[in-house]
Structures are given as structure tokens and as C-alpha cells.
Computed example of a mutant assay.
Amino acid sequence: MQVQEAARVGFADIDWSKPWFAPFAERGERWQQAALKGYAELLAEMNADAGAMQQRTGRGQRLAFIAQDDLPPGAAYEAHIASTGCVPTRHNLHDFFNASMWFAFPRIKAALNARQSAAIDVLGVGPTRGGVRDTLTLFDENALLFACADPALAAALRGFDWQTLLVSRRDAWGTHCEVRCFGHALLEKLIAPFKACTGHAWIVDVPSDYFGWPALARNAWLDETVSHALLNTEPLTSRLFAPLPVLGIPGWWPDNESPVFYDDASVFRAGRRSR
């Protein structure tokens, strides 16, 4: 199968009714139709939205999307975005979801780019990224935003207390905690979900009235709060995340209606380190 045809098959598999995709469906469905037509059509649709929103990257450059082949030889991906505003983008699901996050959570994406490019300025591009860049990449690729107004639920997540978080307190989901998918590699994996699919949850303490706000207001609040944390948290390490099996989230997978679903210790593991 040719590359172009393989890409079309992948885009056709996006089911916007799934809870991990649904928050991004309004723009995503339009982009999906463009992607099914072709690479140029997808870039044109993305750039039309970027122009309308006047989105900026980590160093204040106007956002645009370019073909991957237009990235100059030897240029570092994040540094190129920071200096030019141009995001090299392939005709595939991975980059489709990456671009989507520039619109869903623009401040978070700009913060990630700012810290990545700052680290490159200091250390250059070597065979390894280093701890800070590894953490930023982990966030960018696999993060879940766990918005929580109840410290006991956040503690249950940090402590691998799945019975409290996902069984005995499952009625708290939607009223005291919720999740937004952010990582674009995670979203790509969820095209074909599997039980062990696990995101890295970034816990966000939210005010109690958060859950009464409209979805757009909640997203904007998360965008501002998390971007500020990414720019100012020191040290920035992978220990700031908590693993969360995505299909265990109440309401996200039919099989988890039965408590037996959570008895699988190969997925819902006991913690092996203190937090």
C-alpha cells in the first residue's frame, strides 16, 4: 500500500464519538476530511485556522504548518518552531494530533516549545535530550491532564489506589475530577484502544466551582494553569506524572462498568515507589 493511501486509511479510523477524541471533534472532523483528500489539503486547512486564530509559538512567532521536507537539513525540530513559527508536519495521525493540540491547548504547546528550545540553546542537540527535555517530550507525547478538586482523589491516583479512584469513588468523576487527553502519541494509540494503554497524568488542582463551568472555560483555565506550571516548575522531572490506564477512566470504556475489570494487576499495578 502506498504511503498516501495508508495515511488515508488511518485518518478514516478516527471515531470522534470516543471520549478521548470528542473534545476535539469540532475542528478535528473538518481536518479529517481535508486529510482524506490529501497532504496539501490538510496543511491548507491547518494554516487557515492558524491564520484566523493568530496563534503564537514559544517565542512569539506566528504559527504555521509546513511539509516535513521543508525542515532545513540539520535543523532541530523544536528550535525551528521557536525561531520561525513553522511546525514541520507529516501526513499522518501522529502529526495530525500534534497540530490539534496547538489549537486545543495553545499556551501549553507554546510553553513546551519555549522550554524545549531554551534547553537546546544551552545544551545543543546531542545523542540524548537530557532530563528536562525528556520530561517535556513525555508530556507532549503521552500526557493526560487530570483536573481534580478533591485532594483524596489526587492522592489515590498518586498512590496507585485504583479501588478508591476508579471503583468506590467513580461517582466523583465529572463532579470532582476529570481527564483531558493531551499527548499526541497517546491519541494516536487510542485509534485502536487496548486495556494496557496508559497515559502519564499531570495532576492539576482546580477550584471546586470548576465543574460548573462550560467546557471551553475549563479548557482555557487548564491551558493557562498548566502552561504556567511548565514554565516555572523546577526541577521538571518524570516523577511529576502519575500513570493512569486510559480505559479504566469511568465512562470511557464499557467493560469498566464491572469492578472485575480493575482486578487485572498487570494493568492496574501496585505502586513501586513513594511519591
Rank of each mutant, 00 (worst) to 15 (best):
M1E: 08
M1D: 07
V3Q: 11
A6D: 10
A7G: 11
R8E: 11
R8D: 01
G10D: 12
G10E: 15
F11L: 05
D15N: 15
D15T: 05
P19S: 12
P19C: 12
A22L: 14
P23W: 13
F24L: 15
E26V: 12
G28T: 10
G28V: 12
R30A: 13
W31A: 09
Q32P: 03
Q33W: 01
Q33D: 05
A34S: 09
L36N: 05
L36R: 06
G38E: 08
G38C: 10
Y39I: 05
Y39R: 15
Y39A: 04
L43K: 06
A52G: 03
A52T: 11
T57W: 01
G58W: 00
L63T: 04
D69R: 15
G74A: 12
A75H: 11
A76E: 15
A76L: 10
Y77T: 11
S83C: 04
S83K: 06
S83W: 01
T84D: 00
C86S: 13
H91M: 03
N92K: 12
N92W: 01
F96L: 13
F96P: 01
F103C: 09
A111T: 03
L112G: 02
Q116C: 05
S117Y: 03
A119K: 06
A119I: 00
D121E: 14
V122M: 08
V122G: 02
G124V: 09
V125I: 15
V125E: 11
R129G: 09
R133T: 06
D134E: 14
L136I: 07
T137Q: 02
T137R: 00
L145G: 02
A147L: 00
D150K: 01
P151Q: 03
P151C: 04
A155G: 06
A155R: 09
R170P: 08
W173N: 07
W173I: 11
G174M: 02
H176M: 06
V179P: 00
V179W: 00
V179S: 00
H184M: 10
H184Q: 06
L187P: 09
E188H: 05
K189N: 12
L190K: 07
A192D: 10
P193Y: 09
K195R: 15
K195Y: 01
S208W: 00
D209V: 11
A215G: 02
A215C: 02
A215S: 13
A217T: 13
W221M: 12
L222T: 08
D223H: 08
T233I: 14
S238T: 15
R239E: 13
L244E: 06
L244I: 06
G248N: 06
P250Q: 05
P250D: 07
G251L: 09
W252F: 11
W252N: 09
D255F: 03
P259A: 15
P259M: 13
F261L: 10
D264P: 04
D264Q: 06
V267E: 04
F268A: 08
R269Y: 02
A270E: 14
R272S: 12
R273Y: 13
